[in-house]
């Protein structure tokens, strides 16, 4: 049963003051979801850590800052302990938050941008254009993305810029497919025909008519891309293939592996940091999705 249409009764319109703006409605729905709020809080904490890294833990996070392998809560100078080279774990966590966020945001922007353009063109024009673009997409999807990522990093080097670009390049296929599917269903909707019937150009139809309607699910999906980007960077760093000049959570876990038996905290603390950061993106994405599609939930 659908929501009853009251078209018979009401030829009058509801009061405009009672109709809140779209974004406000979304925020209200989002706010009602406790898990999503938790995600938001976690996210804000990570952002604050990244922003305040130089204030709370000033100086190079990779320098020797205390006796090696100090356990957490022992020394006031190293509240989360130190690793085998005497590097402060708390400094690593705070500075690592920066790298994770930068990688997450920039790589996501790159992959979503590529995905939107390719998906939109393929989905709107269809036919041969679609066929050719989908072959390329399939090719990218067929190579295991982590193997491609390793190859790209091996070839172009593991500076942070290269890693960000490489992650963007290996993760655009899913957004592209998604945008394509949205475009294929939206281009059949009558409002697109209506715009064509008014003489609106193809470019304007793609970007001004269809794209705004196709974006909400893509924005939700961006949270997934963000999460996987962070996971990919940390996996690279874990394998020792990250940028050695920056503190990275993955790298900390990788280094902690050799002292796992004696000093578990060296890997567990950054591990929990990744876990919570990725969790915050998932929770927010989920909450956003529920807010955008209220019918799925009670």
């Amino acid at each position: 049963m659908t929501i009853p249409d009251t078209s018979v009764a009401s030829d009058s319109l509801p009061d405009i003051n009672l109709m809140p703006a779209r974004s406000l409605v979304l925020w209200r729905r989002f706010r009602r979801n406790r898990a999503a709020l938790l995600g938001l809080v976690l996210f804000v904490i990570v952002v604050l850590m990244a922003a305040l890294a130089d204030v709370v833990t000033p100086g190079d996070p990779l320098r020797n800052a205390g006796p090696p392998l100090t356990a957490p809560l022992v020394l006031a100078a190293n509240p989360l302990g130190t690793d085998q080279l005497g590097r402060d774990i708390m400094a690593g966590i705070f500075h690592g938050a920066r790298i994770s966020l930068i990688i997450g945001v920039v790589a996501t922007l790159i992959s979503i941008a590529i995905g939107v353009v390719i998906g939109a063109v393929a989905g709107y024009f269809g036919g041969k254009v679609d066929g050719a673009l989908m072959r390329v997409t399939e090719a990218f999807q067929t190579i295991p993305s982590f193997v491609l990522l390793l190859t790209l990093v091996a070839i172009f080097g593991s500076s942070i810029q290269n890693i960000v670009i490489a992650i963007g390049i290996v993760s655009w296929t899913a957004p592209a497919r998604m945008v394509r599917a949205e475009f294929m269903s939206l281009r059949k909707r009558e409002f697109v025909d209506a715009a064509r019937n008014l003489g609106v150009s193809d470019v304007a139809i793609i970007f001004r008519e269809i794209l705004p309607n196709a974006l909400p699910p893509v924005i939700v999906f961006a949270s997934v891309v963000m999460a996987t980007s962070i996971l990919m960077e940390s996996a690279l760093a874990f394998l020792g293939l990250g940028d050695p000049n920056y503190a990275s959570w993955g790298n900390m876990i990788g280094q902690g592996r050799s002292v796992l038996r004696t000093a578990w905290f060296c890997s567990v603390i950054p591990g929990v940091a990744i876990l919570l950061t990725v969790l915050s993106f998932s929770l927010m994405g989920e909450g956003l999705n529920d807010a955008l599609n209220p019918r799925q939930k009670k």
Partner: peptide
């Protein structure tokens, strides 16, 4: 499910080994 999904596989591996 959300926790599993957010768990980096290499971190999980280390925890399992530990």
């Amino acid at each position: 499910g959300l926790v599993f999904y957010a768990m980096p596989s290499f971190f999980l591996s280390l925890l399992l080994i530990l």
